[in-house]
C-alpha cells in the first residue's frame, strides 16, 4: 500500500454528490510541469478526489518545495 497516507483512516468517506464510497485508484498529480500517478481515494462515478490533510502538508508540501528549489 502507499506510504504517503493511510487509506484505512478514510474508510468512512463517501462522495456526497453521488452517494458512493470513495475507492483507491490512480490519479495524476502535477506541479511545475512534473506529473506522476499516485494512489488516492476517488469517487468512481464523478472523479472527485480526496487529498488527505497529512498528504497535503506532508509529502505534497515536500515535493512542492523540492521542485520549487524553495
Amino acid at each position: 500500500m502507499s506510504e504517503y497516507f493511510d487509506p484505512a483512516k478514510y474508510e468512512g468517506w463517501v462522495c456526497a454528490d453521488c452517494n458512493i464510497p470513495l475507492q483507491l485508484s490512480k490519479v495524476d498529480v502535477s506541479y511545475l510541469g512534473n506529473s506522476f500517478p499516485v494512489d488516492l481515494l476517488k469517487c468512481p462515478n464523478c472523479g472527485l478526489v480526496l487529498i488527505p490533510e497529512e498528504l497535503a502538508l506532508g509529502k505534497m508540501a515536500e515535493v512542492e518545495k523540492a521542485l520549487e528549489d524553495k
Binding site: 506522476f36 500517478p37 509529502k59 505534497m60 523540492a66 521542485l67
Partner: peptide, 18 residues
C-alpha cells in the same frame, strides 16, 4: 514520467520526485 524508469514498485512516487 520518471516513475516508469523504476521497476521497484515499492518506491513511493513522492519520495522519488523529491
Amino acid at each position: 514520467s520518471i516513475c516508469t524508469l523504476t521497476t521497484a514498485a515499492q518506491v513511493d512516487p513522492f519520495d522519488l520526485h523529491i
